[in-house]
């Protein structure tokens, strides 16, 4: 609160009310002498206020010192949430991982990382998150609903006791008769995993049209079922239905705009459609987002090959050979090498 002093002597007295000396010349509301005016205009602050202000200043300095870390973490968290909203799950997974390095156990980041990992088909991270969050109580109902949605979807990604019991009923699980499979799938319409396993079997036997029909049924009951969409892309490419393959790729990319597999599949389909330059551009873009991803490397190797860039192709093959440490990576690279050596039809 500030109050102007109004009950002061009029200027006409020309005598300083503070010390009695002659007041200053000039049009001042209070007739102070020069010394008193100068004295009252200075900043007089008691020692205890200086100490108080000093304390506040120290706290402010400390605040400013810790501010960048806090802001940076907050930005990573918000970027991750924004990426989830925009269905850019690759970015989301990276952002939430950065948050969790600094703030392990942050429920919001942990929960969102689980969601992002699922849509990125990063099942290793997904399983890790699942274990971490098993007994965690969520206060954020929206996040909990999203996690529940993902968990419901994830049920179709793992086998179940009924299916295992069914398979055990046959001496050789690899040679279960088609009639038995068809009967099981018909009786257990909700079991996407079983239908997918049977579709994969048909694909391995190169029964592409039957496989495609079965995938249609699976995707009719679960629009987002990644394994069926991925197999569908391969089936349709193999039967020469590139437009149909691209439709499945688009569906994958609608679910996750940054799906590494989806973008690779789009690049490969473009290459098959003889759109080799756009295919190369996309493969390069994908490789730039993750230079250690063997599937992205294999796609770029193919793109270099079909664009006649043999030096770049061979250099990348060397890099991919040292990066492919697991069987999936080795398989992906081997496919590209087989295409280059004309052992596999592309």
């Amino acid at each position: 609160m500030e109050e102007p002093l109004t009950n002061v002597e009029p200027v006409s007295t020309r005598e300083c009310p503070n010390c009695g000396q002659p007041a200053m010349e000039g049009d001042h509301p209070t007739p102070l002498c020069s010394d008193c005016r100068d004295q009252f205009s200075r900043l007089h602050i008691p020692v205890w206020i200086w100490i108080f202000a000093g304390g506040i200043a120290v706290i402010m300095l400390f605040s400013l010192f810790t501010l960048p870390r806090s802001i940076s973490l907050g930005i990573h968290l918000e970027k991750g949430k924004k990426a989830v909203e925009a269905k850019m799950f690759n970015t989301a997974e990276k952002e939430f991982s950065k948050v969790l390095v600094k703030v392990p156990g942050n429920i919001e980041a942990e929960g969102n990382l689980l969601i992002a990992a699922f849509y990125n088909m990063d099942y290793e991270t997904f399983n890790t998150q699942l274990k971490k969050l098993r007994d965690v109580k969520f206060e954020d109902k929206t996040l909990l609903d999203e996690i529940d949605k993902v968990m419901l979807k994830a049920e179709g990604y793992v086998t179940n006791d009924t299916l295992e019991d069914f398979k055990k009923g046959f001496p050789d699980e690899a040679h279960i008769p088609d009639t038995a499979w068809e009967g099981y799938v018909r009786r257990h319409e909700e079991d996407r995993y079983a239908a997918q396993e049977y579709a994969a079997l048909l694909y391995d036997r190169k029964e592409y049209h039957r496989c495609d029909s079965l995938l249609d049924i699976i995707l009719g009951s679960d629009y987002d079922y990644f394994p069926a969409l991925m197999l569908g892309v391969n089936v349709r490419r193999d039967i020469g239905n590139l437009t149909g393959a691209m439709a499945y790729v688009d569906r994958i990319l609608t679910i996750n705009h940054e799906s590494s597999w989806g973008l690779s599949a789009r690049a490969r389909t473009l290459l098959r459609q003889k759109k080799i330059k756009p295919g190369l551009d996309l493969a390069l873009k994908l490789y730039d987002t993750d230079k250690q991803d063997v599937y992205a490397m294999s796609t770029l190797i193919l793109a270099y090959h079909f664009n006649g860039l043999t030096a770049e192709r061979d250099a990348l093959i060397k890099k991919a050979q040292s990066a492919a440490i697991d069987s999936v990576g080795k398989g992906n690279l081997q496919y590209a090498l087989d295409v280059i050596n004309n052992k596999e039809k592309f």
Partner: peptide, 29 residues
């Protein structure tokens, strides 16, 4: 007040009363 060179006659930074703090200064032209 200091920035505008307005004389300040009294400042109470804090008190247990109403007002909790106040300042008296010369009327500002």
């Amino acid at each position: 007040c200091y920035f505008f060179k307005v004389p300040v006659f009294r400042v109470v930074y804090f008190q247990l009363g109403n007002p909790a703090g106040y300042m008296l200064h010369e009327p500002v032209k």
